[in-house]
């Protein structure tokens, strides 16, 4: 493998991780944009999405659908998982965040952490502590000389970029998107001009959670294994990505996600072993601190005036 090929391979590796971070980060950033809450339980929603995906897939393959029509089966899995995640996100907001809308700022943070612990253990108790496996449905990839890229990697990157563009258009152009932006800027004023704030916030949670479901299923398919604590690490990284890009900003979440993924891949790939792989998170966090010192509200944080 030549040096150039090596760089390209690491680029692909990094972009794949980045796409995953970015997808989860979108949910963080949307919620933050609207109610300025770090929704620590968002990673858990992502985990629930992956689990629902596995469970639905299990039912479907028992019915023989995965063999006859894979595309249809995947469509059903995706829809079911999104519906369930949306339901979970919605319920979580109703139970844990809405009653605290007027409370001191850190209180909802604690309920978010409590929710996160609760959901993790709930899934562990009901589904067991052991790993669950996605059946390998999509295999194969493209080989260009020694550089390898699998179809599912292309798929992950494609979907996340597509979803981001769709989300951006939705927020810029639709009535609901406008209502969201208005709510993000000033809740009181927004309610005065006739926006139902509670509804807008609920919808934000629903959209963010369905995105997490997509992320959960894709990551589950790619890595092939799911357990009840995947949400924790992914959530932490996604949160970092969101802040790196400028939290509350959708393009920022995307940029932050990809950047973080690339940083990790290049740190692991170019710093001589064993330090590269072991210190890659230190490296990523150092870059984050440096970025924040010179741009205190993240890379794209200046557009934060319009938020979300």
């Amino acid at each position: 493998m030549s040096f150039l090929e090596y760089i390209i391979q690491q680029l692909i590796n990094g972009l794949t991780i980045g796409a995953v971070y970015a997808l989860i980060a979108l949910g963080y950033t949307m919620v933050y944009g609207i109610i300025e809450l770090i929704n620590f339980a968002h990673g858990e929603i992502y985990m629930i999405g992956a689990y629902i995906g596995i469970i639905t897939l299990g039912v479907l393959s028992a019915q023989g659908l995965t063999q006859s029509s894979l595309a249809l089966a995947m469509g059903i899995v995706l829809v079911v998982s999104m519906v369930y995640c949306a339901a979970y996100g919605f319920t979580m907001e109703r139970i844990a965040y809405r009653p605290l809308r007027q409370a001191p700022r850190l209180s909802p943070l604690i309920t978010a952490l409590g929710m996160s612990i609760f959901l993790q253990n709930y899934v562990m108790l009901t589904q067991g502590a052991r790993d669950k496996f996605f059946p390998p449905l999509f295999t194969g990839g493209i080989n260009i000389d020694e550089v390898r890229i699998s179809y599912i990697q292309v798929f992950i990157m494609g979907i996340s970029v597509l979803l981001m563009i769709a989300l951006q258009l939705f927020i810029k152009n639709t009535r609901l998107g406008k209502a969201m932006r208005a709510t993000a800027q000033d809740k009181k004023m927004a309610s005065l001009v006739g926006i139902n704030i509670d509804r807008v916030i609920s919808i934000t949670f629903i959209i963010g959670s369905s995105l997490a479901a997509v992320a959960g299923i894709m990551v589950g398919m790619y890595y092939g294994l799911v357990n009840f604590y995947i949400g924790y690490v992914a959530g932490l990284k996604a949160f970092t990505a969101a802040v790196l890009g400028g939290i509350g900003n959708i393009a920022g979440a995307m940029l932050g996600g990809f950047l973080l993924g690339l940083l990790e891949a290049f740190a692991a790939g170019f710093i001589p072993p064993p330090h590269g792989a072991q210190y890659k998170d230190v490296f990523a966090f150092t870059i984050l601190v440096l970025v924040l010192i010179f741009r205190p509200s993240g890379l794209l944080g200046e557009q934060v005036a319009e938020k979300i």
């Binding site: 949160f239 330090h275 230190v282 150092t286 924040l292 205190p296």
Partner: peptide, 26 residues
């Protein structure tokens, strides 16, 4: 981190905590 506010400070402190742990572990 003096210039940072609110949640940006939160993430930097989080990163600092993780960095110390990773260094201790490695």
């Amino acid at each position: 981190t003096l210039r940072l506010r609110g949640d940006y400070l939160a993430i930097v402190t989080l990163g600092f905590g993780e960095m110390i742990r990773i260094i201790l572990n490695n």
